[in-house]
């Protein structure tokens, strides 16, 4: 990542997101500074335990078919505004 990106103030990145087996895509705003764990939590906050039963596993962000590491930031992952992400339970990793 370039120094310019690292030094820039956090920018708002609205996402099209779906949580696990939920029935609908939702609008979830995050910032370029958020980590994938924070993105997963932001998406889950609208759905987990509300429409999809919470499971005792770690949540992982999937973007363009790639599972992204929890500590990676939105800026590092290269999310563009209105990109789609899915948040899935990683059934091999307990929460």
């Amino acid at each position: 990542m370039s120094a310019e990106v690292m030094d820039a103030p956090p920018q708002l990145v609205p996402l099209n997101a779906i949580f696990s087996t939920d029935f609908v895509e939702i609008l979830v705003p995050v910032t370029t500074a958020n980590t994938m764990d924070e993105v997963a939590a932001a998406v889950a906050d609208h759905v987990e335990g509300k429409r999809v039963r919470a499971q005792p596993f770690r949540k992982v962000v999937v973007h363009r078919g790639r599972k992204l590491p929890g500590e990676m930031t939105v800026a590092e992952a290269g999310f563009a505004p209105l990109d789609h992400v899915a948040v899935e339970y990683d059934l091999e990793v307990p929460a």
Partner: peptide, 17 residues
């Protein structure tokens, strides 16, 4: 109760569901 918007389809304007 909802705390965000459902994502709406750019053609039919109904939720992507």
């Amino acid at each position: 109760l909802p705390a965000t918007l459902p994502y709406l389809c750019s053609l039919c304007h109904l939720p992507c569901c």
